[in-house]
Design a protein around this nucleic acid. Structure first.
Lengths: 205, 205
DNA sequence: AATAAATGTTAATCTAGATTAACATCATTT
DNA sequence: AAATGATGTTAATCTAGATTAACATTTATT
């Protein structure tokens, strides 16, 4: 099978993680996989580059092959609020803006050099109609995202800042290592000064 | 068309709001609609009854025909945290538990006498495979739910309690009228005493 | 009509986490 | 290696919202 992204054999490799990921949820035929590949594109971003900016309509859904992104919201007071981090084998984009084709509330910025597979909106909707199994796949992906979003709401309502930090530290040690501490503080909903204090307390215990 | 729920003509009325709601998103044939109706059930709950209890696996997805429910989480300290209210023309259930068939983190309780249309899990999955347009429909519903969940996270991170109250008051005045104030406080993530104080301030302005 | 249960209010006191500001490290560029 | 910018720490002070507890009002039950 020839790579539909760059038409060369060697970079066929790039699509593999995506196909394997999809296989975990649904089983596509070889033709369907090939067709899927013909509809997507590879894109590399430098550290600091934006995949999406607040106010723009999200035209792509991105599957991360390598790198790390943060999705954040800048409020009226100019304060940044990190909504989520995304790393390899996960999605990044404002799904709301993508699905409804309305201006996004969020920014998505690369905090490492990042390589993604892009699903453009126009082809995405057709693709799902042509391959209902993909509709199923995306439904399941969104379900997962929704569930973790709900869990985040609970955590923010019922845990103290210290407990939230400890949970993150336990669940996502590999992410903690890759992001500056002030961004984690923003994700946890606290100031960097307070996170610094918490971490000291946790270490002393 | 005969009613598949109760096999009587007069209660065919009951399914109408659901069909109209579905029509806003996808177009089903008459046969598809009939088949859908054959797979669902009507259920009435009294005020105070539980549709789902924390720890149980959610076996049904519910579309509300009339009434009002709250979904809430009881934390380790015994504190209740309201995640969402649902009224007519909306869904209620722990989608996470339903989708993954794992024990739920949430309770869903009726705060009014409530009538719902139920989609049982076993038939739901088949239904979606048999009618891919319904797969699409549910994908869109979940997208919507996910988007509002994300928005809630932002609100909780970037707005003060007073601002959150004012927003709720503006956006959901019809819900505010139907729920006791202490439940709204829980939804807003504050104590009932503090909400009482806020409301007084807002009125005096 | 009387009582109990559920809901809402007020005010005093307390605390988790914010703010400010000065300083410390570390990484990058010249 | 000096300098600049990005990141992290510490400590003092401040505040939004929690807690407690007493009381008020509304609604349901006998």
């Amino acid at each position: 099978m020839k790579c539909y992204i760059c038409h060369a054999m060697e970079t066929m490799e790039n699509v593999k993680p995506l196909l394997e990921y999809i296989r975990k949820h649904v089983t596509l035929t070889e033709e369907e996989e090939a067709y899927l590949c013909s509809q997507i594109a590879l894109r590399k971003y430098l550290k600091g580059q934006y995949i999406l900016q607040q106010g723009d309509i999200s035209s792509i859904q991105c599957f991360i092959l390598s790198g790390c992104t943060k999705m954040f919201y800048v409020d009226d007071a100019g304060q940044e609020h990190v909504i989520m981090f995304s790393i390899e084998e996960w999605w990044t984009s404002d799904l709301g803006s993508f699905a409804t084709q309305t201006p996004s509330d969020f920014n998505v910025q690369c905090i490492e050099p990042t390589t993604v597979i892009q699903f453009p909106y126009e082809t995405h909707e057709n693709l799902l109609q042509e391959i209902p199994k993909l509709e199923r796949f995306f439904r399941k992906i969104i379900e997962k995202a929704y569930v973790s979003s709900q869990k985040r709401i609970i955590r923010n309502l019922s845990l103290s800042a210290k407990e939230r930090y400890q949970l993150f530290h336990l669940k996502y040690p590999h992410i903690e290592q890759r992001i500056p501490q002030y961004m984690l503080a923003s994700y946890l909903g606290i100031t960097k000064e307070f996170l610094s204090k918490i971490k000291k307390e946790v270490l002393q215990q």
